[in-house]
Design a protein around this nucleic acid. Structure first.
Lengths: 114, 114
DNA sequence: TATATATGATACCTAAAAGTATCACGTCAA
DNA sequence: TTGACGTGATACTTTTAGGTATCATATATA
C-alpha cells in the first residue's frame, strides 16, 4: 500500500517545518527545545510538530512530562522516489545510475509514485 | 545564488499541481487541455499553473492565441538536493553512491540546501 | 503536599489558498 | 469584418493555515 504522499508534501511546504526537520536531524528535542529556535509561541511550534507527525516525518515519544520529537527520515523516501520520476528530464545519467543502484539493491520496489 | 525553495515546495504541496507536473511530463499542453483532465473550472487550473510557474516548474510559451505549458523539471533539482541531506538517515549505501556519482560529474554543485 | 513546569486543548483572529463566476482582450477563421 | 474561441484579469466566497492567548492536565520537585 503506497503511503499517502499528501500529508508529507504538505508538511514540507512550510519553511519552519523544513527547518525543524533539519534541527531534529541533528538531535531529538522536546517541544520547548524546538520552540527556543523560533520567534513564535510554543503552541504554534506544537502545531507544526503535529503536521510533521501527520506526515510521519517525526516520531514523538513521552519522557516523563516531556515529549521527545525525533526525525523519521524514512518518511521522506516516497517523496524522493516521486521526484525521481522526473530525473530523466534533467539528468539522464544520474537517473540511469540510480536505477542501476536500486536494481542492485533488493528493495521492495512496489512503488506507485502517485 | 541558491534558488528560493519555498515557491517550489509550496507548488508541490498540492496534489492537483503534482498531477499537472506528471501530465506535462508526458507532453506540453495548453491551459484548456490541462483543464480537461480536472473537475474544476479553467480559471482554477490557471491559478495552479501560475503557482507552478512561480516555482519555475513549468515554462509557458505563447502559440497564437494559446499558451503552451511545458515541464521544467530542472526546478526540481534543488528539492531533490534538499532531500538528499536526509539520505544518511535512511540509506547510507544509496547516499554514498549518489555522492560518488555527483563528485564524478562535473556539476556546478554550488549547493546551499536551505 | 504544594508548587512549578511541560505539555495538551480550545477558542479566536488574520491571511492565504482554492475555487467559482464574469467580463475584457487578442487572435483565428468564415 | 464579424464572430467564435482561448486566454487574462478581477471580484467574490469558502476553507485551511499559521499564529496568539488562555486554561486544563499531568509530572517533577522542594
Amino acid at each position: 500500500m503506497p503511503p499517502n504522499l499528501q500529508p508529507v508534501f504538505r508538511a514540507l511546504g512550510d519553511p519552519t517545518r523544513r527547518d525543524i526537520l533539519r534541527m531534529l536531524g541533528q538531535e531529538p528535542m522536546t517541544i520547548a527545545e524546538v520552540s527556543e529556535h523560533f520567534d513564535m509561541t510554543r503552541a504554534a511550534v506544537k502545531k507544526h510538530l503535529v503536521m510533521l507527525s501527520d506526515g510521519g516525518l517525526i516520531n514523538v515519544e513521552p519522557r516523563g512530562r516531556e515529549k521527545v520529537n525525533s526525525l523519521n527520515a524514512a518518511a521522506l523516501k516516497p517523496v524522493f522516489e516521486w521526484l525521481s520520476w522526473f530525473d530523466k528530464f534533467w539528468d539522464d545519467r544520474l537517473d540511469a545510475l540510480k536505477t542501476a543502484i536500486e536494481k542492485d539493491q533488493s528493495h521492495d520496489t512496489g512503488r506507485n509514485n502517485d
